[in-house]
Design a protein around this nucleic acid. Structure first.
Length: 179
DNA sequence: CCCTGATTCGC
DNA sequence: GCGAATCAGG
């Protein structure tokens, strides 16, 4: 389905309301991807919605070396790659600029000591700096200045320097506090 | 990992 | 004009 006047209007409305591209895509439904939405948004030249501060220069990657696009016909076997359907993302969750605008101040101390929220690593599994290798989790535990300092040492993921547990620690919930 | 928008360019 | 692939960032 193409971009009918109706759909374009809905797009504009939702975009201006601060919904993310993927959320708008879900709203429009019928095979509309977030990329399609973003692409359209750009063509309509209505990128900048609420711009509180800064005019991010945004460094352009400067012309890519014309990477080999997708192979047209080719329907041979072999699964492409990460073929994850990811269909159900019907989620009312609000985020982004909208979330920021809606949540003025929520400082305070609602963050209680996470002290004991750490994995227990048996002494014989703990590693010092020299015992680390490409397959050991390099998440540091304890005070580096103390002698009770050690590294997680569990088998690390192929995708990173940490084990599954610490990988999520490192990337995921590293929320809040921007500067 | 999850996600966000920005950009390019074959179609 | 369209949007997948890619990139940069949180």
């Amino acid at each position: 389905m193409g971009w009918t006047d109706e759909r374009v209007e809905l797009l504009k409305k939702l975009w201006m309301e601060g919904l993310s591209a993927s959320q708008i895509a879900a709203e429009l439904g019928e095979g509309v991807t977030r990329n399609a939405v973003i692409g359209k948004v750009h063509r309509l030249k209505l990128s900048a919605r609420a711009k509180p501060t800064n005019t991010a220069p945004r460094a352009r990657p400067a012309a890519r070396p014309a990477a080999p696009r997708r192979v047209t016909g080719q329907t041979s076997g072999a699964t492409p790659m990460s073929a994850k359907p990811r269909v159900s993302m019907a989620r009312p969750q609000v985020m982004g600029a909208t979330a920021l605008a809606a949540a003025p101040e929520m400082e305070a101390e609602l963050y209680v000591a996470p002290a004991a929220a750490e994995l227990f690593i048996p002494e014989d599994k703990r590693l010092n700096l020299l015992q680390l290798n490409e397959h050991t989790c390099k998440w540091p535990i304890g005070d580096p200045l103390n002698k009770d300092f050690y590294f997680c040492g569990q088998h690390s993921l192929e995708s990173g320097p940490y084990c599954e547990f610490h990988s999520r620690r490192a990337y995921h919930q590293m929320d809040k506090r921007r500067r």
